[in-house]
Amino acid sequence: MLNVNGINVYYGAIHALKDVSFHVEEGEIVSLIGANGAGKTTTMHTISGLLSSKTGDITFMGQSISKLEPHRIVKLGLAQVPEGRRVFSNLTVQDNLEMGAYTRPMNDRREIERDLELVFKRFPRLHERRRQLAGTLSGGEQQMLAIGRALMSRPKMLLLDEPSMGLSPILVQEIFNCIQEVNKSGTTILLVEQNAKMALSISHRAYVMETGSIILEGAASELLDNDQVKKAYLGG
């Protein structure tokens, strides 16, 4: 479904991604794990079109997307929940969700309303607070909003960047359950996480990144047992 072929991304003179290649198949949950500064978020931004790669190519459902503008990529069905949630704090919860459906045509109104109800059903707390400004929500609620907002575009594939960041263990569990549910309902998932244990526990496959390169790949269960991974990312 998503193929990343040898992309190289630079920040000025800094070579941030070095020949990164990986793929995600339809229906999978694939994780990208690694330490701070390994290039995980850069990879996500490049897929979504916020950054561009100097060489290499990214294809989504057979179509090259590496030269497309971000809003066109969303329209193709590839949505992202960015790191740090990035909800629009000056808009209400409901308006945030409607911004998620921005690419959908106006005559899709009834379907949009239906999806809104689905998000509210998945996250009842958002329904309670739908008229509140998003900036007044707690961290966990904002993460739910960020996920709900991305789902409003009806993505075929969802990119999630550090959804567990700054959340309590109970909330992390809740968010990960939700990710699994979204996957079961037919959305392919690419997950970036520092919480490697958690990520691997719900993933089918995973890639390990270090200083801008992918250094390991395999089935999630294999990586959980891999000594190198255990030592570096799972705390022994």
Partner: peptide
């Protein structure tokens, strides 16, 4: 408020 996040919403 956040133009990158807006882009990620398809705006």
């Amino acid at each position: 408020e956040d133009s990158s996040a807006a882009k990620l919403m398809g705006i």
